[in-house]
Simulated assay, not measured.
Amino acid sequence: MARPREFDQNQVLEKAMELFWAKGYERTSIADLVAYTNVHRGSLYDTFGDKYQLFLACLNRFQQSSYKFVAERLNCPGDPKEILRLFFEQTIDWALNENEKGLKGCFMTNTAMDLAAFDANIASHVEAFNLKLESSFCDLLQRAQPNGNLASKHSVRDLARFLVNTRHGLYTMAKTATDRAALQSVSNVALSFLG
């Protein structure tokens, strides 16, 4: 008879995600994961599979929490331009400031830069994440359209893709640019097509 698990899977996933986020997939060893999660190697393997499967579980966890966050921010009532402005303000805040756990940037953006070009499975996760973001931006922009607040010759879909790219770009740029004004200028340009 198998022994019952003596750890909370959600807590272990959260800890593993923090470590992958801080160090990246390649620089995180199983020994690191064991030490950081305080779960034995065999238990990690039995529960999550190998390091790669654990990383995918962390990526899925991040995707779900990000979808919830984006939906809460972009699907709220109000002026679409103000909603977007606040969304990008918060993105810049997070991009520039490591949180209390030392996590820099966006886990998905970091993964896209580190692994997506070499791993088709990871690339498909990043693409799914981007498509979901794109859909949320589309919904917001479609709300702006009837009021004549969408001053652009581009389609809503093209603008939504541009906003997805802007979000990732802010996180990427913040890795080397510590001047908030530089990131703010990017956000201002992104908002300029909304009247």
Rank of each mutant, 00 (worst) to 15 (best):
L96C: 08
C138S: 03
F162G: 00
F7Q: 01
A31C: 01
F69Y: 14
I92C: 02
F137L: 00
D119F: 15
H154Q: 13
D50G: 03
N188H: 06
L56M: 12
Q63H: 11
N188D: 15
T109F: 02
K68R: 15
S65V: 13
L140V: 08
L150F: 14
A128F: 11
G42M: 08
K68L: 11
I83F: 02
R3S: 12
F88Q: 00
M1I: 10
N121Q: 14
K132A: 13
F87Q: 00
C58E: 02
Q11N: 10
V70H: 11
Y25M: 06
Y52V: 06
R41S: 13
C58K: 00
A174K: 13
G169I: 04
L54C: 02
P4R: 12
V164G: 02
F87D: 00
Y25F: 14
V39S: 09
F48S: 04
E26A: 13
R161F: 04
L56E: 08
L44I: 07
S135H: 12
A22T: 10
D139E: 11
N121M: 07
A35N: 14
A117R: 11
L141P: 00
V156N: 00
S29R: 00
F69S: 15
V12T: 12
S187H: 09
F55K: 01
E72S: 03
S152L: 02
D79G: 02
A2I: 06
A95G: 12
Y36N: 11
R180V: 11
M1C: 11
